[in-house]
Design a protein around this nucleic acid. Structure first.
Ligand SMILES: [Mn+2]
Ligand SMILES: [Mn+2]
Ligand SMILES: [Zn+2]
Ligand SMILES: [Zn+2]
Lengths: 126, 126
DNA sequence: GACATATTGCAAGTCATTTGCAATAATGAG
DNA sequence: CTCATTATTGCAAATGACTTGCAATATGTC
């Protein structure tokens, strides 16, 4: 964390630990209850903003009316599949350069980013 | 509106009119200010919920922390491109059956729906 | 036109997130 | 190591999007 020029504090250690623990898109409320009031809710928000600005987390939206955060460690850019029955989340990687090229040609926009999330039923819940 | 078995009331007329007027994904606040307090905010929310249940509008999420609604009139299923500079929104249709099939094979999920929105710069803003 | 009840407006409530500010703690100069 | 500087925290209050309870009102029906 030193490398991004900020202080290595208890809240930052803890939020990082929580995100590592969950290792999937996690809400602020989940992080907070995992940390059992060891740090303030506001600090969780502020730390997540910082991690986002430092490009260490992805912000994921499943349309629940709240944000989810995921550590940007291992993989490359990817998307998710959410089981609407059990809530399980699975990472999914796909080849999307062709799609992006088509979109740019069709729209004349310069595409900078995109959100793509899938919803359905996992193998067990089908 | 009679065909969906509900009363044809002033708020419903007006929300429908507002959505027609904007003809792009529109927020509740936008609808409200367009209608200039001719109906209550709560009624806008309730009418939009009803239109959604009746499958007459799409709910669109651009990750701004609020929902946008779009009349489901003309086209088929489509996605959007949002200009991060001027806010312009363009509809985009694409062939996605292959992508969906790949996702299902790869994940073993049964895919029921998905969110896909693009962000970038429109032709003018590039 | 009158009735039954679907629908509305308003006030209050909820939930996620943000902000102001005084108290506290992480660094690093000495 | 000690202390000062100032980044960071906790707490309380504010905000914004939406939801809910309920009494007042309007719609479709007979
Ligand atoms: Mn992931
Ligand atoms: Mn559209
Ligand atoms: Zn499942
Ligand atoms: Zn533009």
């Amino acid at each position: 964390m030193a490398k991004i020029g900020i202080r290595y504090t208890k809240p930052r250690k803890l939020v990082f630990e929580a995100l590592t623990h969950f290792s999937k898109p996690t809400s602020v409320a989940e992080i907070n209850s995992y940390l059992k009031n060891r740090i303030n809710l506001t600090s969780i928000y502020r730390t997540l903003d910082l991690l986002k600005k430092s490009d260490l987390v992805n912000v994921i939206l499943f349309g629940e009316g709240k944000k989810r955060y995921e550590l940007k460690d291992k993989d490359e850019h990817h998307h998710h599949l959410v089981c609407e029955n059990c809530g399980d989340v699975k990472d999914i990687e796909m080849q999307e350069t062709n799609m992006l090229k088509n979109v740019e040609e069709q729209s004349k926009f310069k595409v900078l980013k995109h959100n793509l999330e899938f919803f359905g039923l996992c193998q067990d819940c089908q």
